[in-house]
Amino acid sequence: MKPLFVTGSSPALRLTVALLLSLTLIFVDSRYRHLDFVRSTLSVAFYPIHYLAALPPRLARAVDGRLASEADLRERNSLLERENLELKSLMQTHQALQAENRRLRDLLGSSFKLRDRVMVAELLEVDLDPYRQQVLVDKGASSGIFVGQPVLDANAVMGQVIRTSPLTATVLLITDAAHSLPVQVNRNGLRTVASGSGLINRLTLLHLAKNADVRVGDLLVTSGLGGVFPPGYPVARITEVRDDPGSHFASVIAQPTARLDRSHEVLLVWTLPALSRAGELDERPLDAAPPAGMDTSR
């Protein structure tokens, strides 16, 4: 027999409890890291949903691969062969240069920088919150992925790992509004900070003096100063330098060179201890949050 009147606590009381709980969650989750455990446990439980949602595009690509015409395949094959040839010829000089570099470094007595170890991971093609620049990859803590790990695609830096669960990892892209990374202009070594804008194709360079030597088309590479990203990887190209009379600094806009919204595969990088401080810097992603004084632009 069902009760005639609704029993139990009133909706208003329940709402109060729910509000208090969720406000606490929001506060703790946005300030501290105590809830990462809860999130990673729950996200393992809901992995099937992510997997299911990513299935249609994966199937579509598989079917597309089966249905490719012979002419297409031939064309692709010849394109790849040509690219391979070019890369091989580059590689020849590269090896000679590397040997020379090692000799010179030996002469100088400085330690030789080992090559970074990488792992290829595939993106789980699911749409996360459209107002944060995050992607999900199909490798997690069980493959040795750690929080703060740099993520690259074939062309450039994409972002860094901010959360791991045993099976997946969440990557914060360099264009997220909460992300900043130290870069330098490749042409002249000028150091600055590239801060995300929340738009997928836009980075802003902070605190560049109005007479700073930057031009449209300059390549920005990681400077390695934050201790998270290894130095020397391309990040973005400057697309706009504007002198805004109202502000103290030049406003400089850059476009990421990584294909942030189109890559299917990403590279996860382990920087080997050439960065001698790597061990102690693993713990906190310095780049993830700009220092307190840098928030003025937003």
């Binding site: 729910a18 509000l19 709980l21 969720s22 406000l23 606490t24 969650l25 929001i26 703790v28 989750d29 946005s30 809830l35 809860v38 999130r39 729950l42 996200s43 809901f46 949903i49 992510h50 996360l128 919150d129 944060r132 995050q134 999900l136 959360r163 969440t170």
Partner: peptide, 12 residues
């Protein structure tokens, strides 16, 4: 959890 927003945002 599944969309990666701040924990508690959609809950609220």
């Amino acid at each position: 959890v599944v969309t990666g927003t701040v924990l508690g945002q959609h809950a609220l």
